[in-house]
Simulated assay, not measured.
Amino acid sequence: MSSGVEQSAKGTLRIGDWIVSPMAGHMTRGDETVRLEARTMRLLLCLAENAGQVVSIDDLLNQVWQGVVVTPDSVYQAVTSLRRLLGDDPKQPVYIATVPRRGYRMVAKVSHGDEHALPVIAQTAANEAFHPPGQAIKPRSGSRRLYTKLLAIVCLLIAACTAFYFLTKQRPLQQTAAAAVTPDPKSIAVIPFLDLTDTMNEEPFADGMTEELIDRLSQSKELHVASPTSSFYFKGKQVTVADISKALNVAYVLDGSVRKSGNTLRVAARLVRADDGFVVWSQTYDRSWDDKLMIQDDIASEVAKALKGSIR
């Protein structure tokens, strides 16, 4: 990891709407908290430390995957996953932009430290406007007593609201948890594949690849496959595998991407176990860009055969 990334890991960063805490391993936005794996955090910090600049695939491999032998596919998948966590759209990015044939660029505003302290700084500046530098600002005793009373009232209100919430919500939550249905261990949802081609104009092919996979997997009597309507509901939405699993009541989620280089098409597929988020199978398929329908049928057949042995 570069020295800049090491420095960022010691404090907090504000990246767009997110406050990133590397030491805690998470980022927050309002009431939302998202935990990041160590490598995903290093990827985010690497891009943030070079905000506004293009970071090449080789640089990311050297800094994020230092000492580990991986292919550029690992970078593509990691960036795609990070975008989903940030709530970013690769077609209209506000966080990470793809620079065709060069790499990625952090386009969001990045600043060091927790900017929640700004109101306090602003108040200090206002005080100094009425008091010469070096002169102590003594709080009025009456204001101090009023502040203490207000603080006590606020604490009582918070305690009362908390007690009311747990008294009124605890039973419904328990009932909901009891009513939750455990997904069939051989159930799966195929999420629309991502178009990661340089021009991003192969979305119809990516959608067709998704539909072909759903159709091919549905022919297996051993698997229970979510319908295309349910799967395509999540197209373009920034949701986690856990959320998809809960919404569709499936044990596995299959996603992937489509890329193109010259006359070669590359389709990457990945099977994720929903209960722990682990990737249990992944494969990359390279085909000549001659017959799109034949490519979809060929890859769908191979994926269907591979998944039968991976889903237990």
Rank of each mutant, 00 (worst) to 15 (best):
Q135S: 02
A136N: 02
A136W: 03
A136M: 06
A136Y: 03
A136T: 09
I137P: 02
I137T: 02
I137M: 06
I137R: 02
K138Q: 09
P139E: 04
P139V: 04
P139T: 00
R140N: 09
R140W: 01
S141F: 07
S141A: 15
S141E: 11
G142S: 12
G142C: 03
S143L: 13
S143G: 06
S143F: 04
R144I: 14
R145V: 12
L146Y: 07
L146G: 06
L146P: 00
Y147E: 13
Y147D: 09
Y147T: 11
Y147C: 07
Y147K: 13
Y147A: 15
T148Y: 05
K149N: 10
K149S: 10
K149F: 11
K149G: 09
L150K: 08
L150V: 03
L150A: 11
L151W: 08
L151M: 13
L151S: 13
L151A: 15
A152L: 14
A152M: 11
A152N: 06
I153C: 06
I153M: 11
I153S: 08
I153Q: 10
V154A: 15
V154L: 13
C155W: 11
C155E: 15
C155P: 03
L156S: 10
L156A: 15
I158Y: 06
A159I: 08
A159S: 11
A159Q: 05
A159K: 01
A160D: 01
A160W: 04
C161F: 12
C161T: 12
T162Y: 04
T162E: 11
T162M: 10
A163K: 01
A163N: 00
A163Y: 00
A163V: 05
F164D: 10
F164S: 12
Y165S: 05
Y165D: 05
F166W: 11
F166R: 01
L167D: 04
L167W: 05
L167R: 08
T168Q: 13
T168M: 07
T168Y: 03
K169L: 08
Q170R: 13
Q170H: 10
Q170L: 09
R171G: 06
R171I: 08
R171Q: 12
P172I: 03
P172V: 01
P172C: 01
P172T: 00
L173Q: 14
L173W: 11
Q174A: 13
Q174V: 06
Q174P: 00
T176C: 06
T176I: 11
T176N: 12
T176G: 06
A177I: 06
A177S: 07
A177V: 03
A177M: 12
A178T: 05
A179Y: 00
A179D: 09
A180E: 15
V181N: 03
V181F: 02
V181T: 11
V181E: 07
V181A: 05
V181H: 01
T182G: 04
T182I: 10
P183D: 02
P183H: 00
D184Y: 05
P185I: 00
P185E: 03
P185K: 02
